[in-house]
Structures are given as C-alpha cells and as structure tokens.
C-alpha cells in the first residue's frame, strides 16, 4: 500500500509541482483539484506549475530524538519553508550545520533519499533544502 501511495506523488516530490488557481491566483502545494479559497469557482481552473525551488526558512526545529529511520541523520533540521511563490511546505534542511540555520535564511531545493521501506523495500526520494 505504501509503495503505491508514495508512487502517486513521485512527480510532485521530485519536481515540486504545485497548483495555481486560475480564479484567485493562489498557489497550493501539494497540488489540489479545488482552490481552498475559491472552492467551486476554481473548478477546472487549477493549473499545474513548477515551484522555482527557491525559498526562505519561515520556522524550524532541530530534531534530537528522531524516528528510527532518521537515526543516522540526527541531529537534523526540519523546517517550514516559505517558497518564492508564497506557498509554505515542510522539509529537511541539509548540507549545513544545525547551528547555521536561521529564520529568514535563503534555501534552495535539492533531491535526496527521504526514506525506505526496510533494507529490502522501495526507496523513496523527495525534496530537501540546502542553503542557497
């Protein structure tokens, strides 16, 4: 079940595909069929767009008590990123020391392993962010 669920979102996770409402212009990520602001007025007007991959740290937390699958990476930073298009998303910040991360820090998207279903299972890849 997990394999199919992750697979459905591969394109979104690999290339930061969002939707833009053709009625009000609001960008949503992950993509939606209906705009959360315009509702019915957005029907059939949701356009798929690529986020630029550039953004800044809106807020963050350093994780010291990590889930088992993230033991190798702790301590690590999980952050809310405000993308250039205005939409916010949650992602790990990598390729820098935890102490270097700050609110307002410019970051850009990259692609890394985000998990795997055990040593014999499917590997999941997705976006993480590095200092810009």
């Amino acid at each position: 079940m997990t394999t199919a669920r992750f697979w459905r979102d591969n394109a979104t996770r690999y290339n930061l595909i969002a939707t833009k409402c053709g009625n009000c212009g609001k960008v949503t990520f992950p993509p939606r069929n209906v705009c959360p602001v315009c509702h019915r007025k957005s029907m059939g007007k949701m356009e798929k767009i690529h986020l630029s991959g550039h953004g800044e740290v809106y807020s963050f937390s350093v994780v010291y008590d990590a889930p088992l699958a993230f033991e190798m990476q702790k301590p690590y930073v999980i952050a809310i990123i405000k993308m250039a298009e205005g939409v916010m998303l949650t992602a790990q910040i990598i390729d820098c020391e935890c102490c270097e991360v700050a609110i307002g820090m410019k970051v850009k998207a990259t692609l890394r392993k985000i998990g795997e279903e055990g040593p014999g299972g499917v590997i999941h890849y997705g976006y993480k962010f590095v200092p810009a």
Binding site: M72, Q73, I94, D95, T110, L111, R112, K113, I114, I123, Y125, K128
Partner: peptide, 13 residues
C-alpha cells in the same frame, strides 16, 4: 556520501 545520498541522488544532481 551523506546517509541520504546514493547513486540516484548523485546522478540527479
């Protein structure tokens, strides 16, 4: 490589 890097991520970069 970092623990979240492999041949796929290196190739993609």
């Amino acid at each position: 490589p970092a623990p979240d890097e492999d041949v796929v991520t290196i190739s993609i970069e």
